[in-house]
Simulated scan of single mutants.
Amino acid sequence: MQLQQVSALQFAPVKAPAVPKLVVWEAFDPDDPMTKAAGELYEETLPADERIPWAWIERSIRERVKSKPRTNGWHKHLLLAAPENRQDDPGALAGYVYGAFLPGYGGYLCYVGVAESARRLGVGRRLFDHFFKVLKVDAGELGEPLPFVIWESHRPEPDAPDAEWEVWAARKRLFDRVGGAWIDGVNFLSPNFSDDPDAAPVPLQLFLKPVDTPETAFTAERLREVVGGLHQRVYRNAPGTALYDGTLPPGCEPRLRPVE
């Protein structure tokens, strides 16, 4: 009898711990400890050659609070995520996303990061989805459509360690889950933000989520306009500059294809 009781205990199902509810909100105070924690996570998870100074993002928060964005300006947002009831605990920050709605162009997701302790809990997807909703509101306030949201990601070099390729695979799975498509046929040459003035441009892959414009409308010609617009509106690179022409050389025929 006692042996049967022990056996029952050994094989009793173990209930998995509940995943805490995640809260996503917009940062409006660059001096808030949660915003500072996002800056630390930003610098921990992104190489120096791919990131702008965090002070620029803090400045965009101050500008957003002081004045309403102009119709021809960027509508910038920094969104933060943390477990419910821990939104004031910097150690509990689960992730962030930063980007903007560009009137007359579309949505641009600049950076996204998830804390190591919050990986595989759906944080990245929640941040993407919430960001898409915020941009829809921006577009609606201006009476514009939100044709798409575009973002970049750095693919590892062929000889990169397996760990980097595993991270890349995880990113692609996330991009697929949020409805993104890969802009195939384009290596986007981004400025190098490291302190080395002679550093080479950073080649990035582009991903696009169609929103108010159907995917079938993104022909090669339309995609060239989207990619060229990213250079012009975000990086201030016009046709004839090395980065613009290197991204869109003659004969470039980009197409959307599934991420996976």
Rank of each mutant, 00 (worst) to 15 (best):
Q2V: 10
S7I: 04
S7E: 08
S7Y: 03
A16E: 14
V19T: 14
P20G: 05
P20T: 06
L22P: 00
L22V: 10
D29Y: 05
D29I: 04
A37R: 02
L41T: 03
L46G: 07
P47W: 01
P53K: 10
E63N: 13
E63K: 15
V65C: 10
T71G: 12
H77Q: 07
R86G: 02
Q87W: 01
Y96W: 07
F101M: 03
P103Q: 05
G104N: 03
G104P: 04
Y105K: 02
Y111V: 05
V114D: 06
R125G: 04
R125H: 10
L127G: 07
F128A: 08
H130Y: 03
H130T: 14
V137Y: 09
E141A: 08
L142P: 01
L146V: 04
P147Q: 05
V149M: 09
E152V: 00
E152R: 09
P156M: 09
P156F: 07
D176T: 10
G180D: 05
I183N: 12
P191V: 05
P197V: 07
D198P: 00
A200W: 03
F207E: 02
E215Q: 13
R222N: 12
E225Q: 14
V226C: 11
L230W: 00
Q232L: 09
V234D: 01
V234K: 06
P239T: 04
G240H: 06
R255C: 14
R257I: 13
V259M: 11
